[in-house]
Amino acid sequence: MTVNIPKVTHTTQSIKAKKQSAVVTFFSNLLRSWTGMVGFLIMILLLFISIFGQWIVPYDPLLADFGKKLLPPMTDGHLLGTDQLGRDIFSRIILGARVSVIIGLTTVLIAGTFGTIVGIISGYFRGWVDVILMRIVDVQLSFPFILLVLVINAIIGSGLRNIIISLAIGGWVIFARVIRSEVLALREKEFITACVATGVTRIGILFKHILPNLFTPIIILSSLQIGTYIIAEASVSFLGFGVQPPEPAWGNMLNEGKDYIFSSWWLITFPGIAIMITALGVNLFGDWLRDTLDPELKGE
């Protein structure tokens, strides 16, 4: 017995033409949005100087030269001037970028992984596990993020490693919450029901069907959170916790410079601008990512 096969139309050919590699699609989408492009370029620049910073700095950022202290910008070959110890501000900002990038990326990795795992467990298994985990999250969310980070930092001490730990402890709850709600929504999707009907195991559904659909929200949330962490680190360092001098970080540069705000404005202005540009870039890129990836979430 043969089964009659209806003709297949030619629409698929046009699909083939449209089908490009993911990288090409990414960049062609990026080129269409100038905000996304600006954000992307800022992030690339930041990454570049944090990796190659130590070779491109014109001066040793730790070298004090009291003869040249508090030089205004564009004098004596100091592009952005010098601070109260005569250190080159431009060089210190470039090296400070590394701190920001390390903190942003590591924190998001730790907080994101932990938060995602909690979110998945909570959303997929529901029941009392969900209740307990979410109450913990609720309690933590009732404290202001920056206060929590400060308290933890005060307890475990300052330094790069400890600031990362305290930021991660303060930050995982956002991931847990968002991922849980994504999982809850996914669980109810008909293609998950279809998997159950096919006979896929529970673990199989979790790893092969729910997890791949979480990548997009995770990427979007991560990119937005990086900005939050960088600013939080700056705030904590500004308050005297976090990264300790003489190690340059944008936050402690602000802290040191604040005493000179009326006499030597450049001490505090340029690190501030650096923080602003970074946060802006990360957020622009994150927003663009969300806008581009969102429709795909809905299957288009």
Partner: peptide, 28 residues
């Protein structure tokens, strides 16, 4: 087995047709 009403919602958007059709054979 089951056929669903909404052909847009019942297929996982992140899977290719090969993966979708392979799955039942694999799990059983």
């Amino acid at each position: 087995q089951m056929v669903f009403q909404d052909p847009y919602a019942s297929l996982n958007p992140k899977k290719t047709i090969l993966q979708i059709l392979m799955e039942p054979l694999k799990v059983h």
